[in-house]
């Protein structure tokens, strides 16, 4: 039985086996045999150039800050597309959610989730994390609200207009911080050379523009992803059907 679909599957299997072998090679070599090339420059120069303890954050927001701006605009474009796609439908909101037990206990847990998200964003230059991760955790609060309390509760708490404003001002903040470097005579998104304080490595206030850019990206990603989910979920339920019992 040699149908084209089977051949396609055979090709996919061969591709996955090759990829798996490649990944296995990456696992079995020891990472500290000696670092060469650009990696050595980044690892040795991060503390001197940026003052950030997290090398990944330094690469994302300092050495390759312009790429991060591009990534953030990808999310912006996605949100715009989804909002346009779902704007023409009839606008419905649901106000019934899950039972009283779930609502009450989740009310106790949501502040901790928000605290965790803020700490991931603010500590992005010190520990693993950053704007993208913390913003995604923020956006899961929207999912919890929409599922547990109904999407009208979410719209009443944080209105979609406010979310759009937060997202746009996050993007604006990113570009403005980049323009500071341009004003002082450097390149776009210049960090230390543009006069931002380096601080002591390991302190909260260190790393020049990196924490500010983390906050900007966190605003953008959090508001953007929650707008994405909200605009998909707002037409989900039918308000004419009877509300489920509260017990």
């Amino acid at each position: 039985m040699k149908s084209p679909r089977n051949l396609q599957r055979l090709g996919a299997l061969a591709l996955s086996l090759a990829l798996g072998w490649w990944l296995w090679q990456g696992v079995t070599i020891s990472p500290f045999q000696g670092i060469t090339g650009p990696a050595a420059r980044y690892i040795h120069g991060t503390a001197r150039d940026t003052g950030a303890a997290n090398v990944v954050a330094a690469i994302l927001f300092d050495y390759r800050g312009f790429d991060t701006l591009g990534e953030a605009s990808v999310i912006y474009t996605t949100v715009c597309g989804v909002a346009l796609l779902f704007a023409k439908r009839r606008y419905r909101r649901s106000s019934h959610g899950l039972s009283f037990i779930v609502k009450r206990s989740m009310a106790l847990l949501v502040p901790f989730i928000l605290l965790y998200a803020s700490s991931i964003i603010v500590m992005g230059h010190l520990s693993p994390g950053g704007g993208f991760q913390g913003g995604s955790v923020m956006a899961t609060v929207t999912i919890l609200f929409c599922v547990i309390y109904g999407s009208s509760f979410e719209a009443a708490r944080v209105s979609p207009k406010v979310k759009e404003t937060i997202e746009s001002s996050g993007a604006l903040l990113f570009v403005l911080i980049g323009l500071v470097g341009l004003v002082t005579g450097g390149a776009f998104l210049t960090n230390i050379a543009a006069g931002f304080p380096r601080g002591t490595m390991g302190q909260l206030f260190s790393g020049g523009t990196i924490p500010l850019l983390n906050i900007a990206v966190g605003m953008k990603v959090g508001a953007g992803l929650s707008t994405l989910f909200y605009s998909m979920v707002k037409i989900l339920e039918d308000p004419t059907e009877s509300s489920p019992p509260e017990v």
């Binding site: 991760q133 999912i143 994405l228």
Partner: peptide, 27 residues
């Protein structure tokens, strides 16, 4: 040894993408 990527992967793929797929499935 990539905790940044792991954090993103855990949140995005298990939380956001799954719920978006479920919403799209029910719509």
């Amino acid at each position: 040894q990539a905790p940044d990527v792991a954090l993103t992967q855990a949140i995005i793929n298990s939380g956001l993408v799954t719920s978006l797929f479920l919403v799209a499935y029910s719509q």
